[in-house]
Amino acid sequence: MKTLKLITVFALTAVLGFTSCQSEENTEVGANPNANSSTSPTASNFERASMNDGSDDDFLDGNACTELLFPLTATVNGQNISIISELDFSTVLEIFAEFNDDADNVTFNFPIRVRTSNYTEVTVNNQEELDALNAACENAEAEGRDAISCIDFNFPITMLTYDIALEQTGTVVLQSEKQLYTFMTGLQADEFFTVNYPVSATLSNGTTVQLNSDAEFRDSISDCVQFEEEEDEAATMAAEVEATLTNTQFKVQSFVNAGVNTAADFADWSIEFTNDLKLVAKNNVNATLSEIEGTYAVSSDTSVFLNIAFGSNNTVSALNNDWVIATYSDTMVALQSKTDASITLTFQKL
């Protein structure tokens, strides 16, 4: 899932009141040659970072530009689901997770309402209108008009305003992302501003940072965007690994612990990864031995992980671990322990 919010071409800027006042006691009173214009990189960064985030429901509408508004109903893999709040997202995800080799399908019961990146609410009457919104979102991304969702400001934020002569005209105290977006998009060509730093913000990796300048803000954006790109790459890799494993039987080609390769202990066993996230270990030499069942799960952050759980005190329980995907191909998956990189496991497709 892509975590970037995008501008949509279907909505107009929402009008929102905010606090503005004249001041002669600010630390920046007077002419300020470092004031930013409406077309400055700082203005663009704040505008993009304050857009409405529509990415949390992308698994439903596939559109990071739009936020679905509740209530709504949809048919999910043939099941009619009422979605009253974000709490109901888990029901949809559980349906998606039932099988990992099927094509998940969501059909909305129109009309539905959405909130766009610039906070305008729009009624979508049919699939064609929804497709048009999605196409506009894709075009905006292709044109580099993507928004930044990896940084959340901790309000309030105070802006100092200036006229074309760079003389201070007042202050604006902003209490929300919507107010910040409205301020930035409402700046005229003869209006300038500076940020009354420091500004506190929380990045998508959970880190809270204090920004002390436009340059620090720019660098924080660069860092968190890179982090999200790494997350996106890992998510793509996780899907590829899961597809490689699903409905396939493997043998243990290598299992190294404390420098000793014990793959021979599993030579008679095949390991099948089913499409409902189950594991089945079967002895292919001695048919009298019962199959051993377990579970698996593929996940990711900036790396890709495979959890294997066969229970305890059985022939294959030594394979239990939280593994990191080291390398993989269509026929092989190589793993190393999340807690001890010296412990490695390689599965070879049968």
Rank of each mutant, 00 (worst) to 15 (best):
E94I: 05
E98L: 14
F99C: 08
N100H: 06
D102K: 10
D102L: 14
A103S: 11
N109G: 15
I112A: 12
I112N: 10
I112C: 15
R113S: 14
V114R: 03
V114C: 09
R115L: 08
V122Y: 10
V122H: 05
Q127D: 01
Q127K: 02
Q127V: 14
E128M: 10
L130A: 11
L130E: 14
L130K: 15
N134P: 08
N134D: 10
A136T: 07
A136F: 14
C137M: 06
C137F: 09
C137W: 12
E141C: 11
A142N: 13
G144K: 00
R145H: 12
A147Q: 12
I148R: 01
S149L: 04
S149K: 04
C150R: 02
C150K: 00
I151D: 04
F153V: 07
F153K: 02
T161D: 04
Y162S: 01
D163S: 08
I164F: 15
A165M: 12
L166T: 06
L166A: 06
E167W: 13
T169Y: 00
T171V: 15
T171E: 05
Q175N: 15
S176M: 03
E177T: 02
K178G: 06
K178E: 13
K178P: 10
Q179K: 12
M184I: 06
G186C: 08
F193R: 00
N196V: 04
P198M: 01
P198R: 01
P198D: 02
A201K: 01
A201G: 08
A201P: 07
T202V: 15
L203C: 10
N205V: 11
G206K: 03
T207I: 09
T208R: 02
V209Y: 07
L211D: 07
N212Q: 07
S213Y: 10
D214I: 06
A215T: 14
R218D: 13
D219Y: 05
S222V: 15
S222C: 08
